[in-house]
Design a protein around this nucleic acid. Structure first.
Lengths: 172, 172
DNA sequence: TAATCTGTTCAATTATTCTTGAACAATTTC
DNA sequence: GAAATTGTTCAAGAATAATTGAACAGATTA
């Protein structure tokens, strides 16, 4: 009873060589990023760059994270948009090299700007429109209740508008 | 040229009868809830209850939102856990009746408790473990850099722990 | 100019999450 | 107790989101 000698088992599938420290830090950012509703790959890329003393190019990230070039490129694109990674010039190397931005205030500001604000699009307008409907509500208890609820919605929205920009400031 | 008289077109597929106001408010909460990473159905249920002057039972929600009993039941379960809907007793009706909790501070507190904290599980422990690895880092520039990054991670975590509970307080 | 290198894009696949609907338990009514 | 009512659970299906990989464009080198 023997295994076919012509068939070589593909060992561990290109196990990415990451130190325990790197794995730990990446793991931390993967969880964080999940809470924020971003894809795991974003957390992996940022995590590796965050612990890395040196900037690294796209293909190094691909290899070490065992991630496709497409995902890595897209992930870096988003991270750059947020301002969470920066491109640094590396003399004598044609490739872009990336480092992690580690200033929490900037990270928060970038995240709010790129991820939260766009999704809050037109909320103000829509509430405006709703407020218009309030006038044609009946003059009874139900009408009064609903007008009150609409006002509450408006106040919540204003409060949110005020608070969001302050978020960054709270971060030390 | 005529349509087969025996074939009745199924009209609009049980178009849920919602007023423009209701649609608007539901729409508002659906967007909000999406930003928070919760399923749409949660926003629909809460939105309808939020504008409704009267408490309503599960099957009314199903009918008006055109949503399955399963989804409605699960959605109400989560909303109850967060503290975003309350059960009110309705004399002479065996069914539970639900209303929306509209106190923002309580909503935020419940959301953090049920959705954020559980996901942040063990982050402290894991960071503790990572801090252990710091000691066996080399005494060169790279080692120093990584130790610093680990410290930063620890500070961020502490800061988050302090800030989360305050979130509710900010809400008026 | 051709060949190589670097990085981006996007259609197709894969993985994840949400919703449905039917089966079930627990009450209540007859 | 049988039938009806109310609400929950969960496996299967549907919808959504993330990832891959191959094709591509632009830049650089030979």
């Amino acid at each position: 009873m023997s295994f076919p000698p012509t068939l070589t088992l593909p060992a561990e599938p290109e196990a990415a060589s990451l130190s325990a420290l790197e794995v730990g830090v990446i793991d931390f950012f993967v969880s964080t990023v999940r809470v924020l509703g971003l894809p795991k790959s974003i957390g992996e890329i940022y995590g590796l760059l965050f612990v890395a003393p040196e900037a690294m190019p796209l293909d190094t990230l691909c290899q070490r994270l065992n991630m496709s070039k497409g995902s890595t490129s897209q992930g870096l694109k988003m991270l750059r948009a947020i301002g969470a990674v920066k491109v640094v010039y590396q003399p004598g190397d044609r490739r872009d090299h990336f480092t992690a931005e580690a200033d929490l205030q900037r990270l928060v500001a970038g995240f709010v700007r790129e991820q939260i604000h766009p999704r809050l699009n037109h909320v103000g307008e829509r509430l405006q429109h709703l407020a218009g409907l309030a006038d044609s509500l009946p003059e009874n208890a139900s009408g009064a209740f609903q007008r009150e609820r609409l006002q509450k919605l408006g106040r919540w929205n204003e409060r949110g508008q005020e608070l969001l920009p302050l978020l960054g400031g709270l971060m030390e």
